[in-house]
Design a protein around this nucleic acid. Structure first.
Lengths: 168, 168
DNA sequence: GCGTGATCCATACCAAAGGATGAGGGCAGA
DNA sequence: TCTGCCCTCATCCTTTGGTATGGATCACGC
């Protein structure tokens, strides 16, 4: 299985501001991951010295960590594979002329991804989560997509894309 | 907007559903899990006493276990989704009569008209104009339609309706 | 180097969509 | 007649969608 968790490396530009809490996206995920792990270790340590006073055995630590991170892994796996599932389920034989249409309209890779997820009924926020980008970015892609498709709403975009053969 | 510094903890909604689907293998999974965990602990202990002799720190254990079990979780998650896919996918294609689906869902005439126009990318106001009814009425039809289709947005409704054969 | 396009992110603002609730009239069947 | 369903419309409120604008990085080609 190919992990395309991060299809493209994020830019480091706004990182100065990125330590603020409202930050979303890849690095927030990494930081959150690390934080969660650190917090977990801290909590375990705390309980060890506080209540069981060195009575906690290594196996307990391992167990707790294993269970928690397995759950986290399941979640991540689900996120990663939802995409594939949705693509596999509906048969998509018509894949001939869409590339042409996309090229002629100047639709970029990212825009096409957003379009495809939009057609599946996902909200902008859900698309952002799935592509590991922020909500404003999704909106940005969507807007430029609408211009290229000459529409003004997502339902129109989906309808037009299907009639153009861009979507199955 | 909520702070998602920590990457949004797993919502176990879809997972619990998947687990229901696979209840037979559940305890086997648990047992396998426990075995794997025990083996891992044993291996770690072995290496500790054998080579590093108490030089390994707690954080290393936690880290290794976290990584391994996250990977394991991803695998388990993919397995669960695979099963779900196999069960969902084949049920979709055989849908010859849209009338049947509409009847079985209790979708009324007016709701079906709204759905059809929605699929063409029309806004609620445009639908209202076309059907000579008021905007609130369109919203009302749309809302009850969403309930019957078990969705919450118009793009979802269109997508589901197509997969159900209600729409071309 | 320098422009250009793709990608990413942010803020602010306005429009559209959706949820909740209530209500009135028409109409078929118990 | 009463009940239930459909269609209609309304108000209030929240969420989502869309536009505008600007800034940042990076890859690529001139």
């Amino acid at each position: 299985m190919q992990l395309d968790l991060v299809p493209r490396m994020p830019n480091f530009g706004p990182m100065s501001k990125s330590m603020e809490l409202r930050r979303t996206g890849f690095w927030a995920t990494v930081v959150g991951y690390g934080s969660a792990m650190a917090a977990l270790v801290f909590i375990l340590k705390y309980f060890e010295y506080r209540y069981w006073i060195r009575d906690l055995r290594m196996e307990v630590y391992i167990g707790v960590v294993a269970v928690l991170f397995t759950a986290l892994g399941v979640w991540v796996g689900s996120k990663l594979l939802e995409d594939k599932r949705r693509e596999v389920a509906p048969t998509d034989p018509p894949l001939t002329s869409n590339v042409e249409a996309i090229r002629s309209l100047g639709i970029s890779v990212r825009e096409e991804e957003v379009l495809r997820l939009m057609a599946q009924g996902l909200s902008n926020q859900e698309i952002a989560d799935k592509l590991f980008i922020s909500l404003p970015t999704v909106k940005s892609h969507a807007s430029s997509l609408f211009v290229k498709l000459d529409v003004s709403r997502r339902t129109q975009a989906v309808h037009k894309a299907k009639s153009l053969g861009i979507l199955a």
